[in-house]
Amino acid sequence: MVTVSEEKKGRSLLLLFAGVREMGISVFIVFLIAAVSLRSPYFLTVDNLVYILIDIAILTIVAIGETLVILTRSIDLSVASTLALSGMIVGMTISKHQGIPPAVAVLMGLAIGAVLGSVNGLLVAKGRIPPIIATLGTLSIYRGLVFAISGGAWVDAHEMPRPFVYLSKNTTLGIPNLVLFAIIVAIIFYYFLNHTRTGREIYAVGSNPSAARVVGIRVDRILFLVYLLSGTLAGMAGVLWISRYASAQSDTASGFELQAIAATVVGGVNIFGGSGTLPGVVLGSLLMGIIVNALNLIRISPFWKLAVQGFIILLAVVSDALLSRRLQQAGASEGAS
């Protein structure tokens, strides 16, 4: 019988920890909440918690797209620029045509994001440009296009149709619309990643690209698809963003790609591809949201935000690397004994 012997127990424990990353973040979040609420009683009020959820809704949507890309061993740096460009185009359109219903505006955002995402997909899958370079290029191309089409001007709250602004302010069944959007997206992509063959192929491509080719997975198409989806979600997030902040500017969401990537890697998505779960990413966004909120509440200057994000990215990546190396060593020394 193939059984696990006693001396491997330590390794299984390590595995358990690696396997249930969500657990680790949850524990961390609980500690953080406890610590912050000691310093600031307002933190644990319903108002504030709902505020945090609303605050991370857009981040969660973008981070889910980023997750798909990172699962395949790639990266998408252009999400924030895509978000801004989609937001600007939709914002200018609805300010000219006030009659456009909010649903159509959202669909417009999806379509614009899909186009921008598929450009990334073509550059990476067909043009074979390293993902970081391709999306670094489109990051500035899309950002520049925001400026080009707006001429540096911005779309103001009073230029937007009322129903559109209320899209993000209203609640449905007591749940804020923005949070509802994030929940719907999370459920759809949870289903996609876990219950469709294509979803599983995304994991397979990131886990072992050459083996993926051997079993007949079309790696190029998967790469194209994840960029398409990442762009689409960022495009939708753009519409929600301008509705929430009631303005579209040329520097909308500047640097937001870092928050998305941070939420993803903190949520346990391996930057080397192949592993990571959607619940983990949602928790990752929540953690980032709580940190930002807490920094505000305990009156630490917002200027810490960026440094904390960078530090957390490095911390997550270094600990992942060290952990997986430990696992590999454990596996190697056992395999050949």
Binding site: R197, R200, Y203, S207, N208
Partner: peptide, 29 residues
Amino acid sequence: PTLFPDLSVGENIFIGHQPVRPMTRRMDW
């Protein structure tokens, strides 16, 4: 072995010909 380390044993066995439900094409875990 040429397997996918991040996927489960069962999924590795059936990768490329996973059972799906007939109508929805949903993975039949």
